[in-house]
Design a binder for these strands. Structure first.
Length: 157
DNA sequence: GCCAACGTTGGC
DNA sequence: GCCAACGTTGGC
């Protein structure tokens, strides 16, 4: 099983929006970055565990856990001229963009902030804490996953 | 194929 | 709101 972290701006789609979806499941559409797409297309498998990360907000950080429930398939929003994610270069016969379905598992007991993740030595190699990182989907190692769950249990000052 | 210009991301 | 970092575009 693999571990991942996926970012979303809570003003667009936050974890509370996910819990409000039917079945607490949603397709992760709108990813328009090739590196992120390739991970969804080639590597994300049913049962993989995913941290839900809130970006571009007051306290950026991990707010919950999700699970992959459907593996990569074409992102139909790329074909819809009404969608903000419309891409005229994505041909329905040869779709350019891919999404997966994810299901809510739980909120973390608190927000595990980016500031806190940056202070943890075990996590210093995570792409997330590196300067200038803009990837919206990234792999998390088993060690990093366990470390973050450990952090969740402790108070952060 | 290079690279400058431009648009976007996202922390602060 | 600012701006650094990065990806994409398009002229040449």
């Amino acid at each position: 099983m693999n571990y991942w972290l996926m970012k979303s701006e809570p003003s667009a789609f936050g974890i509370d929006d996910l819990t409000a979806m039917p079945g607490q499941t949603e397709h992760w559409d709108g990813v328009r970055n090739y590196q992120a797409r390739n991970m969804m297309r080639d590597q994300m498998k049913i049962g993989d565990q995913v941290f839900f990360y809130h970006s571009n907000c007051k306290i950026p950080g991990i707010v919950g856990i999700m699970e992959v429930v459907r593996e990569g398939y074409p992102d139909h929003t790329a074909f819809d001229p009404q969608s903000q994610y419309f891409d005229p270069k994505s041909d329905p016969k040869n779709p350019r963009w891919i999404m997966v379905d994810i299901k809510y598992v739980r909120h973390t007991s608190r927000v595990i902030s980016l500031a806190e993740l940056k202070e943890c030595e075990v996590l210093e190699n995570m792409q997330l804490v590196r300067k200038g990182n803009r990837l919206s989907i990234m792999p998390v190692t088993a060690e990093e996953w366990a470390m973050i769950l450990q952090l969740e249990k402790t108070a952060f000052q």
